[in-house]
């Protein structure tokens, strides 16, 4: 199992980075939410790998079930806000969100 362990964490870091890149480059709000999802996939990989490696798989499973629920709630509420924003501004472009200036 030892060799899988470092591979898990390298791929978790890579996937985290892909999500962060997605959130950095895209102007589209849906893309931003997809980036968020990819980031939380990386977190799930980290959790299950740590749990499996330390012989605590069941605890890790319990945590992952909760995290998945949290993720679903976040995406649902985030998309609800996005739809409301689309109705108000007629756009999902993040660059147009600059009404607040000091």
């Amino acid at each position: 199992m030892t060799s899988t362990f470092s591979m898990d964490w390298l791929f978790a870091a890579l996937i985290f980075f892909i999500g962060a890149y997605c959130m950095a480059v895209s102007r589209n709000l849906i893309k931003q939410l997809i980036g968020l999802e990819i980031i939380s996939k990386a977190a799930l990989i980290a959790l299950i790998s740590a749990g499996a490696f330390s012989g605590n798989t069941n605890l890790a499973q319990a945590l992952i079930i909760t995290v998945i629920l949290v993720e679903a709630v976040i995406v649902a509420t985030g998309l609800a806000l996005l739809v409301k924003n689309y109705r108000l501004n007629g756009s999902i472009d993040i660059k147009k969100l600059d009404n607040l200036r000091g």
Partner: peptide, 15 residues
């Protein structure tokens, strides 16, 4: 939410 993903990774290491 990216911040909470970082916290989750920290929790994983701690686990």
């Amino acid at each position: 939410f990216p911040a909470s993903a970082l916290i989750l990774i920290g929790i994983a290491i701690m686990l």
